[in-house]
Design a protein around this nucleic acid. Sequence first.
DNA 1: TGTAAAAATGTAAACGTTTACATAAATAAC
DNA 2: GTTATTTATGTAAACGTTTACATTTTTACA
Lengths: 343, 343
Amino acid sequence: MAGQKGVSLKEVADKAGVSTATVSRVINSKTVVKGETELRVQKVIKQLGYRPNRVAQRLRTTRGASKLIGLLIPDIQNPFYVDIIRGIEQYAYAKNFAIVIGNFSQNEERQKFYIEILKSESVDAFIVAPFPGMNEYVKELVEEGYAVVCIDRGLANMDLDVVKVDNYQGAFDAVEHLINVGHTRIAHISGNTLIPTTIERISGYEAALNKYGIAIDRDIIVGRNSDHKSGVELSAQLLDMSNPPTAIFTSNNLLTLGALETIHSRGLKIPEQVAIVGFDDMYWAMSLNPPLTAVRQSGFEIGRITIELLHQRIADPTRPFVSIVLKTELIVRNSCGFKLKGM
Amino acid sequence: MAGQKGVSLKEVADKAGVSTATVSRVINSKTVVKGETELRVQKVIKQLGYRPNRVAQRLRTTRGASKLIGLLIPDIQNPFYVDIIRGIEQYAYAKNFAIVIGNFSQNEERQKFYIEILKSESVDAFIVAPFPGMNEYVKELVEEGYAVVCIDRGLANMDLDVVKVDNYQGAFDAVEHLINVGHTRIAHISGNTLIPTTIERISGYEAALNKYGIAIDRDIIVGRNSDHKSGVELSAQLLDMSNPPTAIFTSNNLLTLGALETIHSRGLKIPEQVAIVGFDDMYWAMSLNPPLTAVRQSGFEIGRITIELLHQRIADPTRPFVSIVLKTELIVRNSCGFKLKGM
DNA sequence: TGTAAAAATGTAAACGTTTACATAAATAAC
DNA sequence: GTTATTTATGTAAACGTTTACATTTTTACA
C-alpha cells in the first residue's frame, strides 16, 4: 500500500483559516505577517506536524534555493574524502541543505553519469574533486549557472572557487624530515600525474632534495594511480632495485597502506631497514606499528570551508573566485627513525 | 545569474508536434505509441538533449516510483559501512535510483532529524542501520508505507526485512581460533550492548569458551561504545589488570584499532605478549604489523542484497518479510600466534 | 470622519511531470 | 460502406509549493 502522504500546506491553511500564501509566508518569513495570524498558523503547523515538502519547494523555486547540493567524491574508500564528507555534512545540514553523494570510484564515465543525475535532481550547487577529463564538464556547470566549488584540487586553466591544501609545502616538509633524520636515498611513490595535487607533491619532494643538494634520481620516483594496489606494487618495484632507497615518501594514504603491506610482507624493519612517511594522516595511524609519521591535512576543515564558500556564492553569484589553501602539518611518529643530537 | 533551466518535456512535445502526454509515454514506455511517432520523439529528445526532471517526476508520482532512496548510516568513518554504501550504490545507480545519505554519527537525535529530512525529500524507501531508540521511529516508517530494509542489525520485536551476518558464528570462530592456538584467558571488548549485533557477538564469544570448558570471567568482558576511543581505553583497562588476558577479541574494527594503539604504545609484542582478533576485516588489515587476524563480513555483499530486497518490496509491498543472514569468514593472519603441531 | 498611505492577506499562475479520461484515427467485422 | 472495435493520441487536472499582483484591512493624518 502506498503510505499516506504528509500534511500539505493547504491543509494547514484551511485549518488556520488563511490562504496558502500566508502559510507560506509564515514559513519563509520573508514578508511580514501579523503577529496574531502568525501565531495561529504556527500553532496549526505544530498541531498537524506539518513539514514542507522539499520536492515541491525545489520544483517551484528557481535555482539557488533548492537546498540540495551534489557532492562528487572520487573514492569513498579513502578516509581523507570521508573526512571531507563529514565536514561538509556537519555544516550543510545545519543550514538545512541536503546532500546527494556520488562516489565515482575514480572512474571518468561514472563521474559524468553522476553529474547528469544530479542536474536532473535540480541541485543548487556542485562540490567536486575533479578527475582528469573533467575540465570541460565542470566548465559547463559553471556556465550553466550552478554554484561550483572544487575541493582537494583545482582545475587547470579554469578560474573557480577552490579549497585545497599546500601540497608543495606538505611534501617538502615530509622529505625534509627524512633528510634531517639522515636519509639521502629517498624514493617517491606518487599518484596519477594528471592530477594537479600529484604534481605539486612531486615538486615539493624535488625542492626538498634540491635544498640539501641531493641529486634527483628519476628511477626512484614512481607513480601510477592513487590506490592501494599501486602502493603494493610500486613499493615492491623500489625494494627490488639493486640499489634500493632507504626511505619512501608516499603521495597519499592508500599508497602508504599498500607500501606498508609490501614492506611487512618482506619482513623489513621500519624504520631501520626502510623508513616511510606518507601524505594523509589517518585517525588510526597511531595504531600502525610503528606509528606512522604523516602529513596531516584536515579534510574536515576543507569541508567546512567549502560549504562556507558555496553559501557565499549562492548568495552572490558574482563574487570573485577565490582559492583557499590550507596548511598541512607534519605529524612525527616513529616510521622514519630519528637522528641523535650532533650526529 | 541563475543558469538556464534544462529542456522541458513541453519543448520536446512542441518540436515533435505531439502532446506532452505522448512524449511522457515514449519515455516511460508503459503504453504503446506508434512506431513512427516514437521514432520522431526519440529523435527530438536526442537532438535537444532532453533529460527528465526528476524533481517534477517525484512530485507527481505516487510513492514507490520516486527513484530516491534514503540511507541512514551510523558512522561513515567506519570502513564497514563504507563498504555497505559502495555495495548499495553500485546496484542502486544501475537501476536509476539516486541515494541520499544521512550519516548520523551514532547520535540518536541526528538520526531522527535525518528521517524527517528524507521524508520531506519524498524518498521511496529507507535503508537503515538502526541505533538504539529507533524502534518506534522505524515502525512508524513502515506503517506510513515506506519500503524499509534494516542492515547490519535487526530491530527487537519488529518484523522487517533485514540483511546481516551471523554475528554469533563469527564471534564463535574468532574465539575458537584463539583457543586452538593455545589461549585460555581471552578478553572481549564489546560495543554498545543495546545493539543486537553486540549481544550476538558476546553470545558467540561465550559459547566458544563454554565449548572448551573455559570459565567465563565477567571481569574481562568490557564494553561501552563502538568507537576508537573506547577501544583505546578499554584495552588499557584490561592490560592494567593484575591478571591480564593473553588475548583480546574485539567486537568491531574501530575497537580493534583503538586496542592496537594501546598495545603498541605500551610496547607489547603481538602475538607473543598479547594476541588480538577483531570483528571486521579491513582492506589494509594486512598492512598492519602484524597483519591482523579478523572476522570478515562483506559489507559490499550486504549492500547488494539490500538493494535487491528493496526492489522487491517496492514492487510488491505485501511480500512477507525476510531476514537474510550472511556467513562470515575468519581471515587468519599473524596477530594470534599459532600452535605447533602436536603441542 | 474621511481620505491616503501602509500593511496584511488573498488569488491564481507557474514549476515539469504523469495520468484518468476524452477524443480521434486505424482496423476489423459485417 | 457503415458500424463496432481496437489502437493511438490529446486534454487538462493534479502533485505541493512560491510569488507577482490584486484586494482588503489597518493605520496615519487632516
